[in-house]
């Protein structure tokens, strides 16, 4: 006989503000290998079809299902219930706009982040379909990919004190995104252009150095060293103009 597990889940629909937010309890039998993905779908299909939450890939690739699980921002799809003690408490990520229950709008937030950091290759080069590609050292390609692995799940933002108190802070995801373009030889931006994007309290200097982002990142991105890298670049520009 499998163990019964108790879930305590945040409920609120912004379309019906007259019903105040509350925590709702559900009890499920814990099957072997049960993840929060499996559990939430079971709850929706068998107990409460109105419950809102987001999953897409269910394989820790797409970044849709981040939520606060027993106090920590994590990807629900790869969190096993057997790794959690006692009642399992699920809350939506803070900072992001709530759509309903556990569902939050990370998409709009991250598109804004891309716009603010101009997160695309800045290049004057025109595409010539007949030409062979420019060469790149494979080590550089891997270095770019290391930073590009961010899946924009929002765990680093939700767990960040600065992001929770100031709305315009780009957070670790933003700083990492800029670092990704800084190491890319195809991007022709100057140090000044980067400084204008990230050399402020909204960017690299807003961070208080608590580094919860680094602890919470489900992709294990080296967010602490990315911050240090970007700050060094900003410092070099500030001191020597390059």
């Amino acid at each position: 006989m499998n163990k019964q597990r108790k879930f305590s889940i945040f409920r609120y629909n912004p379309n019906t503000p007259e019903i105040k937010p509350f925590m709702q309890e559900y009890v499920l039998e814990e099957v072997p290998g049960m993840t929060i993905f499996v559990a939430l779908n079971k709850i929706r299909e068998d107990l409460d079809p109105s419950l809102m939450f987001d999953f897409v890939c269910r394989a820790a690739i797409c970044g849709s299902c981040a939520m606060v699980i027993n106090g920590k921002p994590r990807l629900a799809c790869k969190t096993l219930t057997s790794d959690l003690k006692g009642t399992i408490t699920l809350m939506p990520l803070p900072v992001f706009r709530l759509i309903g229950d556990l569902s939050v709008d990370t998409g709009t937030w991250f598109r804004q982040l891309s716009l603010k950091t101009e997160a695309w290759i800045h290049s004057e080069k025109k595409f010539d379909p007949e030409a062979v590609e420019d060469r790149m050292d494979n080590r550089i390609a891997l270095e770019i990919y290391e930073a590009e692995r961010c899946i924009e799940c929002g765990c680093c933002i939700a767990g960040c004190v600065t992001a929770n108190i100031r709305e315009d802070f780009l957070g670790a995801a933003g700083i990492n995104r800029v670092a990704r373009f800084m190491v890319d030889p195809r991007d022709e931006r100057t140090p000044k252009q980067y400084f204008d994007v990230i050399g402020s309290d909204e960017g690299a200097f807003g961070c208080m150095g608590l580094m919860a982002c680094d602890d919470n990142c489900p992709m294990q991105l080296p967010l602490q060293s990315q911050l240090a890298f970007v700050r060094r670049k900003m410092l070099a520009y500030g001191l020597w103009g390059k």
Binding site: V56, C62, G63, S64, G107, E152
Partner: peptide
């Protein structure tokens, strides 16, 4: 259905 970067 989802933000573009969540696509399959």
């Amino acid at each position: 259905l989802v933000p573009p970067r969540r696509s399959h």
